[in-house]
């Protein structure tokens, strides 16, 4: 599979029984990118949003609850780790599970915020993320049914995976990563806690790049 144009060279393979993670030039790039953002989330202090009081010159800084901050940081790091797993996974079902984990932790990042609009958007996003697992698992299982295997190593370059399974996978990732519908996402990023909230964008960007690699490879 490593002679395909999109993958680049094989650098490293990590074997976990039937699931063999691989690090090609492409996935390693994504992996390093995700690692950099995890480090940022660990070391950065959150931004402090300022509000202007209407009609006056007064400006005040929003207080960020300590509990909330720690929880957001925990979820952001968990989301980063899930992204690491998703970009290096060598198995279709394992990839979809990691993507589902990204969807859940994304909601967790903003769930502690005490703002009705943010919570409303997060709720709608949560419903979409939940529905999207149908397509993720459905795509993986159709690939299993028609090809007899889930391992990307076996499927690579043969073009066996039917178009329907690929469409299902992409739509599933669209739901989890929330990519083309930015409506709720813009609403969600109104939540305070900038470096952690940004993890939502980074993870969805990276799983999108990964799913494109998968559907071009298999």
């Amino acid at each position: 599979m490593f002679n395909l144009p999109i993958e680049g060279e094989e650098l490293f393979a990590l074997e976990f029984g039937d699931i063999v993670n691989y690090f090609s030039l492409y996935t390693t790039t994504l992996f390093l990118f995700a690692t950099a953002f995890i480090i940022i989330a660990i070391i950065a202090r959150p931004e402090r949003q300022t509000d202007i009081v209407f009609g006056t010159d007064a400006v005040y800084t929003k207080e960020i609850n300590q509990d909330n901050l720690r929880f957001q940081r925990f979820m952001a790091i968990a989301c980063g780790l899930a992204t690491l797993g998703a970009v290096s996974s060598g198995d279709l079902f394992n990839f979809s599970l990691f993507t589902a984990l990204i969807g859940i932790t994304n909601i967790g990042i903003v769930a502690g915020v005490n703002n009705r609009y943010v919570l409303n958007a997060a709720y709608n996003y949560g419903i979409v993320a939940m529905v999207a697992t149908t397509f993720l698992f459905g795509g993986a299982s159709i690939a299993l049914g028609t090809c007899g295997t889930l391992s990307i190593w076996e499927l690579a370059g043969k073009g066996l995976v039917p178009l329907a399974a690929k469409m299902f996978l992409v739509l599933g990732v669209m739901g989890e990563g929330m990519a083309p519908f930015y409506i709720a996402k813009a609403e969600i990023t109104r939540a305070p806690g900038a470096p952690y909230v940004l993890m939502i964008h980074v993870s969805s960007l990276l799983i999108f790049l990964r799913v494109i690699e998968i559907i071009l490879t298999v």
Binding site: A121, N124, Y125, I127, V128, A132, F181, I183, A184, E187
Partner: peptide, 10 residues
């Protein structure tokens, strides 16, 4: 552009 309709779009 209304986020209440997000689920319907998906």
């Amino acid at each position: 552009s209304t986020y209440e309709n997000l689920v319907a779009v998906y």
